[in-house]
Design a binder for these strands. Structure first.
Lengths: 250, 250
DNA sequence: CTGTTTTTGAAAGAAAATGATTGATTTTTG
DNA sequence: CAAAAATCAATCATTTTCTTTCAAAAACAG
């Protein structure tokens, strides 16, 4: 059995079980304990897992891309519902802005087969957009490694070339007083700019984002329509007076 | 069994299994280990798979160019030599423009670990550039599906924000009278603009590009230094009088 | 047919992976 | 708390795989 093959098996097993024991792996792969230990050491070095006494455990850093599976399927389902609803708002002839980030990425698959134009700062959206043969414009600027978003002065200048019918974005915090917020200042500026260039603005957020505050402010609460799933009634009331909330019914 | 035939078998098997072992392939094709090793090396060069100890594994594609099946390994080798030479021209502190396209993509792996800044219109370059932790700026504009390049008005406007120490580009035709040419007019405009913003301009081209003419003109022959591999003497003379040619010695 | 290039297989030494063993360290058990 | 059990890191000999080199075989061109 090849090294890489074992590594795949180990990671696969970890995904399912959160914790694997050394002996389990020895039996499964029919190799020696030494070999498995070496494997675990290597994988730990590569930040794929954490070694613990007797085995290894999964690490839930955000660094883990495939930990998408870890997100409870409920959460994912909600996210998708919100995304689908948002995509339904797009109309023939629209020019829309799509923010970088995984929330918005879910939207793309639901975008209608109409004549639309998409502008985005999300590098991760490009393959799927082109795949759907949607005319796509990317704004210029600095390519941020961690989030795969385009940010910076170039991004703002670039946006000036466009006007949008609708823009869609994800945020990290929604708060009655502090408005929409996100951790990265540069990304906040891009969102802000895009929002100011749109006739209609939509923020996609599941219930976990409400009453949260992140570092950098994007806009006041009334400047965008919030698309979300079921909310506690008292939360709803808190926001209803200040802005529009579209609640996706399952 | 023909080389091509073996390659096809190997790739087919990889599609099904994610991992293939050397001995598996030796048995299957009834050739020697040496031959299989050579095959795997070639296929790895062409970015079709990744060699691992004891076999090979499938590489899960990023934003790779899929339509480039005709890579002959000889051609690829030349291309790589040219790319390596070009990368060697990059100096500490340089701000360089990298054109979209597979020729330039080869350069990235050879870029020196110095403080440099890269601006590009090639979406396919982004993953490897970010991977090397090189500060990267993408210009804005229309994302062209076929070539994964950013083009159009936005691209030209975007470029205006920058000035380059050096720019590197691929072309389709080089001709004493007609200059540098490429099939797509929009891409030609981007190349032209980038070239005009650079202190020094370099065109990377193997011998097959000489005396060819494509539809859209980028610049006159004297406006860029040509980096190429061995040339017939008469070809060399034809261009030497009008521009600089750097010949990469193998 | 002859000389050249390309492809192939074999072989040798280098490099990597493996499994067993050692004694140290940690955890469990009494 | 201390002994017993389990797990661990480190080392080493062995096996497997890799790279390089070379010569024979095959394909090719003139």
């Amino acid at each position: 059995m090849l090294t890489e093959e074992r590594h795949r098996i180990i990671l696969q097993l970890l995904k399912e079980k959160n914790i694997v024991k050394i002996h389990e792996l020895v039996d499964l792969t029919e190799t020696s304990e030494s070999t498995i230990r070496r494997d675990l050491s290597l994988l730990e070095e590569g930040k794929f897992l954490k070694r613990i006494h007797g085995g290894a455990s999964r690490l839930q850093g955000k660094l883990q891309e495939p930990s998408m599976n870890e997100k409870s399927s409920k959460n994912l389902h909600e996210k998708r519902q919100i995304a689908q609803f948002a995509a339904g708002l797009v109309e023939e002839g629209d020019c829309i802005f799509l923010d970088a980030g995984s929330t918005i990425q879910e939207m793309i698959q639901f975008l209608p087969k109409k004549e639309i134009v998409v502008v985005t700062n999300g590098l991760m959206h490009i393959p799927s957009l082109l795949n759907k043969e949607i005319p796509t414009y990317l704004i210029g600027g600095f390519a941020k490694q961690k989030t795969n978003a385009i940010i910076g002065r170039g991004a703002l200048e670039s946006l000036n070339l466009y006007r949008f019918d609708k823009c869609f974005m994800g945020v990290n915090g929604i708060h009655p007083q502090f408005g929409f917020t996100t951790p990265d200042q540069e990304e906040a500026m891009v969102k802000q700019k895009a929002l100011s260039l749109s006739r209609e603005a939509y923020v996609l957020a599941d219930e976990t984002k409400f009453s949260e505050i992140a570092f950098s402010k994007i806009a006041d609460i009334h400047e965008a329509v919030i698309i979300t799933n079921e909310l506690a009634d008292e939360t709803k009331d808190l926001y209803r007076s200040r802005t529009t909330i579209k609640v996706v019914t399952p």
